[in-house]
Design a protein around this nucleic acid. Structure first.
Lengths: 92, 92
DNA sequence: AAACTATTTGGCGGATTCGCCAAATAGGCT
DNA sequence: AGCCTATTTGGCGAATCCGCCAAATAGTTT
C-alpha cells in the first residue's frame, strides 16, 4: 500500500499517539483509506491500537524504526519526500 | 518495485559486492529484472555501482540500513520473509 | 570489424495496490 | 431505542508495480 501516507503516519505516531480521526484530518484522505493504512501497519506489528471511548488510538510499537530514517539521512540529504521514495524502494 | 528480491539484494550486498550476473544467478529471475531492481536501489542512494571490465559491481552504500532489520527482529520474531512483509508495508 | 558477454532500457500483459464510496460495526448520548 | 460519531470492511475503477521478452548499449576478444 501507499508510501508517503504510511511514512507520514509513522512519523506522526513517533511523536505521540493519535486517533484515526486525527490522522485522517492531517492526511486529508478518506477515513477508510487511513484506517486501511493503519490496519496494514498494525498487521505488520509496527503499531498497536488502543480503543478508548468510540475512538481508536494508534501508537508506534517499534520506536527503533526511526533509526532507519536517521541512517538514511546520514547518507542522503534526504527530505521526507526522498525518504518516501527510498522506502518505496526497500519496501514495495 | 518488488520486495523480496530487493531485500535479498541488500542482504547479499551487505556481505560483499556483487556483479549483476552474480545476483541474477542467485535470484533466478531475468537479468533485466535484477538490473532494474538495482537501478531503483541505486537511484535511492542505497547502493553504488562500479564498472570493471564488462561487468558492473554493486555494493551497499548505506550499511546502517541493516540496523533496520535488527530493529524489527527485536520486536517481532520475524523471519526474512516476515521482514519482507514488513518492508512491503513501510515501503510500498 | 565481427562475435560474444554483461548490462541497461523500452514495452507490455498480468498482478498488486490505492483511494474513494457505500455499507456494516461499535460506542456514546439523549 | 434512536441518533450521532468513530472506525472498519467490502467493492470497484484507476494507477502502479513486476517480470519477461526484445532491442539497444558497452566492453572484450579474436
Amino acid at each position: 500500500m501507499a508510501h508517503p501516507t504510511r511514512l507520514f503516519i509513522i512519523e506522526e505516531l513517533a511523536k505521540e499517539e493519535h486517533c484515526v480521526c486525527d490522522l485522517t484530518e492531517q492526511i486529508g484522505a478518506d477515513v477508510s483509506t487511513v484506517s486501511k493504512h493503519l490496519s496494514v501497519l498494525k498487521q505488520a506489528g509496527i503499531v498497536t491500537d488502543d480503543k478508548r471511548g468510540n475512538q481508536v488510538f494508534y501508537r508506534l510499537r517499534v520506536p527503533c524504526i526511526l533509526n532507519f530514517f536517521g541512517c538514511v539521512e546520514s547518507v542522503l540529504e534526504a527530505s521526507v519526500l526522498d525518504q518516501a521514495v527510498l522506502l518505496n524502494v526497500v519496501g514495495k
